[in-house]
Design a protein around this nucleic acid. Sequence first.
DNA 1: CAGCATCCTGTAGGATACTG
DNA 2: CAGTATCCTACAGGATGCTG
Lengths: 125, 125
Amino acid sequence: MKKINALESDFDFKNCPVRKVLDRFGDKWSLLVLLILGKKETLRFNEINKAIGSDISQKMLTVTLRTLEADGFLIRTIYPEVPPRVEYTITNLGKSLVPLIDNLEQWAKSNMSAIEKSRDNFVKV
Amino acid sequence: MKKINALESDFDFKNCPVRKVLDRFGDKWSLLVLLILGKKETLRFNEINKAIGSDISQKMLTVTLRTLEADGFLIRTIYPEVPPRVEYTITNLGKSLVPLIDNLEQWAKSNMSAIEKSRDNFVKV
DNA sequence: CAGCATCCTGTAGGATACTG
DNA sequence: CAGTATCCTACAGGATGCTG
């Protein structure tokens, strides 16, 4: 798979920063959870679940939260009570992403309808 | 059901702008192709192919280019020659995304190594 | 050269049931 | 409440061969 002589400069796929971001946040839920936590700072499992709505499965919310925790985007705090209480708090690293997401959101609001229109016309042709 | 407060309301998944962006650019190759075309303006099929390297399959490059064309991010021009020549030119819409990608790239360069380190430590625990 | 047409596989993510 | 543990499926995307 790997070229030895790079006369034509191969793109370094593994080390591309943009690709790394997409690999981590191109999934279905990570950015959304970050956005929600960015607004509320700290939330419990079920609060995040309700904020997202009924679209996400419990399994995927757990997986998403664990991955975000592993990567340092949030902190998970378990309170040894009955019934258990677990709080998720966004970190500074997590917060640093919020402005970028806002940029994406603005761009999308400005251009997405034109894109969808273009796509519809293209199908017709 | 009546919404009591914002947190308990269901998130409007279908109409979330961020989600729309991810649905279109969360794939493996779209942003990369746009980045490459953003630098060169106009390129032929095989030029893009070589710029990406051997990682992408011919099929996926075709699919990616067609989707980008359908959405208005690039223009596909066929020259009726033998052998055929097809040129892909980025549009203004396509160019408008480049600064956002650059932001993502900068963020990734600043934070990605810390994230990967965090992730490695988390696995060990 | 710039592609289709096929076939095939890995895996993200959903559904469901159970629990400390 | 905040999860596990299984099972299951859709589909993104790769490999290969053929062609105007």
